[in-house]
């Protein structure tokens, strides 16, 4: 999906569910992956992702294409920002606005429980990732956000600056200090 097409979809999505559905299909895997790699919790990821898209849907009329984000991934950057905020909200135990049981509850004939069980097994096989992720999660939130976006989501400094609404110099500084703190905590890798 190119920038122009995405811009049209965002505009149409204010009234057209199909347009929002297409944006959702495009960004769900990215946002789900980001939240999971940030939290390492499937349960929390489901809640945060649901809340992220609900807030995006509700706030679509207030989304400004020009001004806040200027590159081609502006809508995506907006979603990442909502997700990052929702992660912090979740950790602060803020009540979700969406009845999440609706989303979690398995449908008749559905395979959500089995799906979660398999996904949990798959996640636990990434022991090296989980060890690093645990240490990142023990850092202050500002370092977690920068390190995760940079190394797990492979975002460029400019993109991280847009998502976190900080200037590039601040992001570089946070990245440098975050790496320094992480280096002191991480045990040597096993080869």
């Amino acid at each position: 999906m190119d920038s122009r097409e995405e811009k049209e979809l965002v505009k149409k999505a204010q009234a057209d569910p199909e347009a929002f559905g297409r944006l959702y299909d495009e960004y769900y895997p990215k946002i789900f992956g980001y939240v999971l790699r940030r939290t390492a919790s499937l349960e929390m990821t489901q809640d945060v992702v649901a809340e992220t898209f609900l807030k995006a849907l509700k706030n679509l009329p207030r989304f400004k294409w020009i001004g806040l984000f200027k590159n081609n991934s502006s809508f995506g950057a907006w979603l990442y920002r909502i997700a990052a905020n929702e992660i912090v909200n979740f950790w602060r135990q803020k009540k979700p606005s969406l009845p999440l049981d609706d989303v979690r509850e398995p449908e008749s004939g559905g395979n959500l429980l089995e799906e979660i069980s398999l996904a949990q097994e798959k996640l636990e096989r990434h022991q090296d990732f989980l060890a690093v992720q645990r240490e990142i999660q023990s850092l202050p939130e500002k370092y977690q956000a920068v390190l995760t976006l940079r190394f797990f989501e492979e975002k460029q400094i400019k993109e991280i600056a847009e998502i976190l609404d900080k200037n590039e110099g601040t992001v570089k500084s946070l990245l440098h200090r975050g790496l320094k703190r992480l280096r002191d905590r991480l045990p040597p890798a096993e080869h």
Binding site: R37, E115, I116, D128
Partner: peptide, 22 residues
């Protein structure tokens, strides 16, 4: 580092329906 690439397709579809019902 090998990052987990996990998806929950059933949850994804269900959330989609819940959102579009809004």
């Amino acid at each position: 580092i090998e990052r987990p690439e996990i998806e929950l397709p059933a949850q994804r579809q269900k959330l989609r329906r819940v959102l579009l019902r809004q």
